[in-house]
């Protein structure tokens, strides 16, 4: 059993009309079975309303399953006694950086989590220093969060979660409100955590470029898992992705179109370098 496991996870919203009468139920998450191993980098893809954010909120015990169960580090999230253990094991980073920074100084915000957990003062300082260094924000520790850029703020949020020493970090569209530069900063920091510290990362996103580094990609649609596999496997099925209203990285799309018109290229090309290499294999001999 991995660090995070979901068993037949179902979550239903109650739909109400204007008078408050129950109109029916909407299944936001429908029968999701996943087993995530410690140290994995998992990307969850899906267009708006595919249930990916609702799914993410289950992993941190913010929402509870209607049916089925979620286990974080072997602990059932629905049990009240497990609540703080679950939240400590699986940290969560949200979309809007402004709405999740509590402190007025960067270091105070990073210390907020450990303070809540009752960590001794000396250790809080050590954790704050180490987490800020891990995301490359140490020199900003005395700054006010209001004066940072979006990408920097989001890195502070990640450090804030990191200071709680989680085994797993769930990032719920952390880059949706950032510019391309900030997006790159955040993804770089997340990848470093995964590779250097061996922290399990679950990245919820709708940007395809962020997915290519993942060990495994889960594509969600209408609350169900529509596709599952390595980035290469997923991106080799360009037509299926289009059906699910997802964009494919430009290089992958170009390779796909070339292949369709007869150029002998392999499936699932993800990066420009790879594309150039494959292309020179085909045309190099001329």
């Amino acid at each position: 059993m991995g660090i995070i496991q979901t068993k037949n996870l179902v979550f239903e919203y109650i739909r109400r009309d204007e008078e408050g009468n129950v109109e029916g139920f909407t299944r936001a998450v429908d029968n999701v079975n996943l087993d995530i191993k410690q140290g994995d980098f998992i990307a969850v893809l899906g267009h708006n309303g595919s249930g990916k954010s609702t799914f993410a909120k289950h992993l941190n015990a913010i929402l509870y399953p209607t049916e089925g169960a979620v286990f974080v580090d072997g602990k059932n999230t629905t049990k009240k006694d497990n609540l703080w253990d679950v939240r400590r094991t699986a940290g969560m980073v949200f979309q809007n950086p402004d709405n999740q920074i509590i402190g007025q100084v960067v270091e105070e915000d990073v210390g907020f989590g450990p303070e809540n957990m009752g960590v001794p003062t000396k250790e809080i300082w050590e954790r704050v220093e180490e987490s800020l260094k891990a995301v490359g924000m140490y020199e900003y520790r005395k700054h006010s969060p209001n004066k940072l850029s979006g990408g920097q703020k989001q890195r502070v949020s990640i450090a804030g979660v990191l200071a709680m020493h989680p085994k797993c970090i769930i990032l719920d569209e952390p880059t949706a409100m950032l510019d391309p530069k900030g997006r790159k900063e955040v993804i770089r920091a997340v990848r470093a955590l995964n590779q250097v510290e061996n922290i399990t990362v679950i990245l919820i996103t709708h940007y395809m470029e962020e997915v290519i580094y993942a060990d495994k990609v889960v594509v969600m649609d209408k609350g169900r898992v529509a596709m599952e596999g390595t980035p290469k496997e997923i991106f080799s099925k360009v037509d299926k992705l289009k059906e699910l209203r997802l964009d494919v990285p430009q290089v992958t799309l170009l390779a796909h179109e070339l292949k369709k018109s007869g150029v002998k290229l392999p499936d699932g090309i993800l990066t420009t370098e790879e594309f150039v290499k494959e292309l020179s294999k085909v045309f190099g001999n001329r």
């Binding site: 400590r88 450990p114 704050v128």
Partner: peptide, 15 residues
Amino acid sequence: MEARCYQGGEGRTRM
């Protein structure tokens, strides 16, 4: 705040 284990002043240490 809840996701970062905030549960009121009880059992909280200070940085």
